[in-house]
Design a protein around this nucleic acid. Sequence first.
DNA 1: CCTAGGATTGAGACCGGACTCACATCGATG
DNA 2: CATCGATGTGAGTCCGGTCTCAATCCTAGG
Lengths: 368, 368
Amino acid sequence: MNGDGARRRDVTVADVAKAAQVSKAQAARALGNYGAVSEDVRERVLAAAEALSYRPNELARSMNTGKSHTIGVVVGDIENPHFGLATRGITDTAKKAGYNVILVNTDEDRAAEVDAVRVLLDKRVDGLIVAPASSVDTEHLQEVHRSGRPLVFIDRTAGDLQVDTMAVDMARISREATQYLLEAGHRRIAFISTLRTDAHYSTGITLESSQIADRIEGMRQAFLEAGLSFPEDLVKLNAGDADSIRSITREVLRGPDQATAVVASDGLIALSVVEAIQELGLSIPADVSFLMYDDFAWTRLTTPPLTVIAQPVYNMGVAAAKALIRQMEGLPPAAPAQFTATLVRRGSVGPRRIEEDPQQEELAATLS
Amino acid sequence: MNGDGARRRDVTVADVAKAAQVSKAQAARALGNYGAVSEDVRERVLAAAEALSYRPNELARSMNTGKSHTIGVVVGDIENPHFGLATRGITDTAKKAGYNVILVNTDEDRAAEVDAVRVLLDKRVDGLIVAPASSVDTEHLQEVHRSGRPLVFIDRTAGDLQVDTMAVDMARISREATQYLLEAGHRRIAFISTLRTDAHYSTGITLESSQIADRIEGMRQAFLEAGLSFPEDLVKLNAGDADSIRSITREVLRGPDQATAVVASDGLIALSVVEAIQELGLSIPADVSFLMYDDFAWTRLTTPPLTVIAQPVYNMGVAAAKALIRQMEGLPPAAPAQFTATLVRRGSVGPRRIEEDPQQEELAATLS
DNA sequence: CCTAGGATTGAGACCGGACTCACATCGATG
DNA sequence: CATCGATGTGAGTCCGGTCTCAATCCTAGG
C-alpha cells in the first residue's frame, strides 16, 4: 500500500543516521537515549526513525549487552492445567518486569529436558525455570549453573543442587491427607502416579521425582505413626495414558484385598480414575473414597464434589519468576518462601465400607 | 569442582581455534560443518571444542543468518485449557521441526497484543501464530506482514487480512447446536461470553471477535430458519470474572421471561455457570438445559455429563504450526484445512420444562 | 619437471547495535 | 583573555558467529 512495500532488509541505525544526517553513534545514542545528545540531533533522529519506521534489532542488542531479556521455562506438560496455571504466573510476572518467556515441553522425558536446557542456554536466555523431570540425573542443570545463569526450580527439587525451589512441603500434606483417610477407617489406600520407573515400587527404591517420593514418604509416615504397616503394593506408578490408568484402577479396586481409597497424583490421572470407578459401578464415597492432588474448578462440579489437595500453583509460578528475576538482576535472594498445600475436604472421602474382614475391623475400632 | 569453575565469558570459536591451532575460519567451518575442512583439522577442532565444552551462541548465529528458529505465539489466556491444548499442538510440532516457541499471553487485551507482536518482531522471531483479540483493529498484524514474516491465525480471523487461519466453522456448528436446542423445545436460549464490548449486544453491532460474532450469527440463523425471532436480549457479553458470570446466570434464569437453556462460550465460563445453576437449586437438564463450547475431559464427570461442542483444538495447533513452518521455509501453502466442530450430546440438554405459557407450547408442538 | 585445477586455509568483512575514546565546542570562572 | 569542566560528536571497536575471497597446497596429467 503506502510507499515502502515489503522490501527485504530492515531499517538499521545506520539508515536512520544517514536520513538524519548525523553519525551512526549519535543516532544510536538518540534512539537508545544514553550518552549526550543535543536537542536538535535528538529530534532529527527521532523524526527520521519514525519516518523510516525503524525498529531496533533485539538480537543485535542482546549480542553485546549480554542480556536477552528472555527466560526459559521447562515444564513437563503444559496441557496439564497445573503447569498451565504455573506458567501463567511466570509469564505474568516476567512480562511485568520486561522479560519474555520461551516455553519448552518435555513430556517428562529426561532426554528432552536435557536437550531443552541446552538449546535454551544456547539461545542465551538470561535465566531458567525448570520443573526437573528427574532429581537423580542433574548434569545438565549443573551446566546451567556453570554457565553462570540463574536457575530456579518449580514444583520439584533435583539432587543436592543448591537452587531456589518453589514447591510445597509434599511430605507434610501427604501425611495429613493420609491421616485423614486413616481416620475414616481406610487401611488399603492406593496411590496412582504417572511417574515412569523401570521397577515396581518397593520401599527404599530411588524415585526420579522428589515430589512423588515425598508424597509416598508422607503416606508411609502417616501409616507408621498410626502403628500400621504401609501397603506399598498399592503404590502404582507408570500410569501412562487413560487406558493404563483405567486398568490400574480396576486392578486395585478388585480382588480379595482391594483398596478402599484411591489417591490420584494429578488432575489428568484423576479424570481417568473417576471414570474407571464409575464404570465399575462403584460410587464415591460410599464404595470407594477418592482424593486427588490439585484443586481445579471442575472438582466442585462433580457429584460428589471431590476432596483435593490444593496447591498455590499460580503463586508458585509468580514466586519462581520473581526469584529468578531477582537473581538475574543481581539482587540478594529473598527469604525462601514456603508454600503450603491445604487439604480441601469436599465430599469424596467417606468412612470405609464395612466388609468381610473382621480382623481389620477390630483395628479400625481400636483407632477410632 | 572440576577445573574450569564458573568464569565469566563463554568459549567462542576463536578460543576453540586457538586451542586447535587453526584459524577462526577453519574452526568455524569444522564446527558448522560447511565448506572444506581436512580430516586432520576437523578432528583437532572437534576435540578442542569438546575439551573447552564449546557451545555456539545462537544469538550471534541468528544475527547473520537472519533466522532465529523461534516462533512467537500470542494467545489470550494459556490458563484456559483450550489454549493450553492448542499451544501443546504448536510446541510439539515446532519442536519436531527444530523451532522454539516464545509464548505471550494477552489477557485478550488489544494493547497487550499489539505490544506482544511488536516485541516478538523485534526479537526477530521467524514467524507468528496469533489468536487475534480483535478482528477490527489489525494495524499491528499488517505490520507483521510488512516485516515480511509469515503469520498464521488460530481460532479466529482478523479483518480482511489474507492470512492462513486454523479455525472451525463456528457459524455452522452454532447453528447446529441451536437447532438441537430448538428441537428440544427451547425458545429462550441464553449465550454467555467473556467478550468485552462497550455496548450491550444488539443486532448489527460490530463485535471485536469474529468467533463470537459467528456463534451468535449461527444462533440467529437457526432461529430464523425455524421461523422464530432471535432473543437477542439473552446474548450476554462482558462476562468477566466468576462473580459476574454468576450474577449474569442468575439474571437470565430469573424473571418472567427467563431462559430455559444456557450456552457457555468457553470452559471457564461453563464452570461458573454450572455452579450458579446449582446454587439456584435448579437441576440440569430438568430445569435448565446446558451446552458449552470445548470438550474437556471433566465434562464427562459431572452429573449429568455435559453436552458440548468439541473442537479439534490440538490438531488446530498442529496445523497452525505446520502451515507457519511451511511458509517460513518458503514452501507453497498447503491446501487450507477445514476443521469441523462436533456436537457431543451427553445429557445436559433436555426437553424444555412445561411452563405457564400456552402459546409457546403450541409452537413447540407444531415443530416437533 | 612443470602446470592446471580442486582442496585447504587464513584474513577480514559483515550482521546491527552498544560503547570507548579522542577531538571539538562552549559557557563559566579567575 | 586564558583555562577548565561539561557537553556534543564522529570514527572505530566489539559481541560471536557466517561467509567471501584470495592465497597456498597437492596431485594428476602433459
